[in-house]
Design a protein around this nucleic acid. Structure first.
Lengths: 249, 249
DNA sequence: GGCATGATTTGATCTGCATCAAGGAAGAGG
DNA sequence: CCTCTTCCTTGATGCAGATCAAATCATGCC
């Protein structure tokens, strides 16, 4: 039985929270934060643990504080596709919906800041700061899903791998309010199988393409779960789209 | 130059609107509807016309009244993926964003109920009925995008075609507040190429699979743009997922 | 250390769909 | 009626990535 970190950090204050500036609560005022503090609790999961099963009831919603999780959908015969990637500051759960439509699995050790559903929904109805931010985040997620549709529908295996690394690098940089450039290192808290499920490939193809990119010097592997990108712009070219990621300036 | 139908219908009243019960304005009260009437105007486009180009400014948002449109994304080398399908009652545009990220093309003749951006955003900030409904619709769209990810990542060409027909049948039935069952006819306001762009296939594969389904009696074709589904449940089985579409009862 | 367990790599072969290449069909405009 | 043009179908061939099969590597446990 894994050691549950939940109660170690159960009373961390919002004003020192690392995701404060990007999470659902980003626009909240002091009094709203106080309300949120009253309904929140932390939970931790280890890599591989299931956080929610599709079809189960959920009595909470949550923000990812650290770590990574995947939303996963399945066909009856077992074919699996990841349909959402939860990184720090992302939101888990849908207000107004009790039953989870997707299975959520921790792909690395993860810490969630959970809010009890009922009080959260109540506050959501009161606070335009909260509901406005949630709308904004949902629209961003929809944009990300649409980029992902392009990836799954039209990119080659090699481009898919490169795209995933670009996404992870951008997200990691965004938390530090930067953008990736030149030499850059990324944590890769995913097994080859999880990557395959994300990219609509098999794990063998993922392995082959990763090693091909490595052989050609586009990436360097430090162990299996850490990637160094010697030239970020070169990786972006491999990813197939030349967009700058839509970030300003 | 096509004949512009825009001004023929420029003053249709909201209370006789066919999409009233499902569009952004669904939860609005009489006074909010009056505000909306003041900022709205209708525009029509013919099949194949571009409604918005990616990168262009948009000074309106809109609801689809009738017809169909596709949001489309492209890689520099021309590979094209549809990333959104706009059917009656769907919402076009993102509040707070001026520049369109995707090209929007009418795939059939289409009528839009447009709202001037600024007044709409103002009302959105005032009205929880409006913003709440928009959040709800955005979350539904995200769910649809996630089903689509599964389709693109893991389904065979045959399953993809069947899935598209199931989606169109469900949407057509939903407008009449029903669910498809038994024998059912669907309009297919898409060229083979548009279907291919939706499904991440080539138009040749779409054509072959459509005719294969026809040969096997799963579908019947009335002309090229109308499909009769003799047994809806059989089509759902071909689509690969046995879900009931998530509708209650 | 020795041994299980799970993750990853690597190789050989197969196959579904893309690609390339002609034709048909059906409507629009002269 | 003829001739574009656009859309669709059908056939032949090739290839990227799936599938099947075995090592290799790591890690934790006894």
């Amino acid at each position: 039985m894994p050691h549950d970190l939940a109660f170690q950090s159960s009373q961390q204050a919002c004003d020192v929270c690392p995701i404060r500036s990007r999470a659902v609560c980003a626009h909240c005022e002091t009094d709203e934060l106080a309300d949120l503090e009253g309904m929140k609790y932390y939970r931790s999961f280890e890599a591989g643990q299931v956080i929610v099963w599709a079809g189960d009831g959920m009595d909470f919603v949550a923000s990812v504080v650290s770590g990574m999780a995947g939303l996963t959908q399945q066909l009856e015969d077992g074919r699996t596709q990841m349909v959402g990637l939860l990184l720090p500051s992302d939101f888990l759960g849908r207000p107004g919906r009790q039953i989870a439509p997707y299975t959520v699995t921790a792909t690395s050790e993860i810490v969630l800041c959970c809010f009890r559903r009922k009080p959260f929904e109540h506050l959501l109805a009161q606070s335009p700061h909260l509901s406005g931010r949630l709308l904004e985040m949902t629209l961003d997620e929809l944009d990300a899903a649409r980029d992902w549709l392009l990836l799954l529908g039209r990119k080659s295996a090699r481009e898919k791998i490169a795209s995933l690394l670009v996404i992870l690098a951008r997200r990691e940089a965004a938390l530090a309010r930067q953008r990736p450039k030149g030499r850059f290192a990324v944590e890769l808290p995913l097994t080859r199988e999880a990557m395959a499920d994300y990219l609509g490939l098999t794990l063998e193809t993922v392995s082959r393409q990763m090693n091909a990119l490595k052989r050609e010097g586009v990436i360097e592997l430090e162990g299996k779960r850490r990637v160094v990108i010697p030239d970020f712009e070169a990786l972006v070219i491999e990813s197939g789209d030349d967009s700058d990621g839509g970030l300003p300036s």
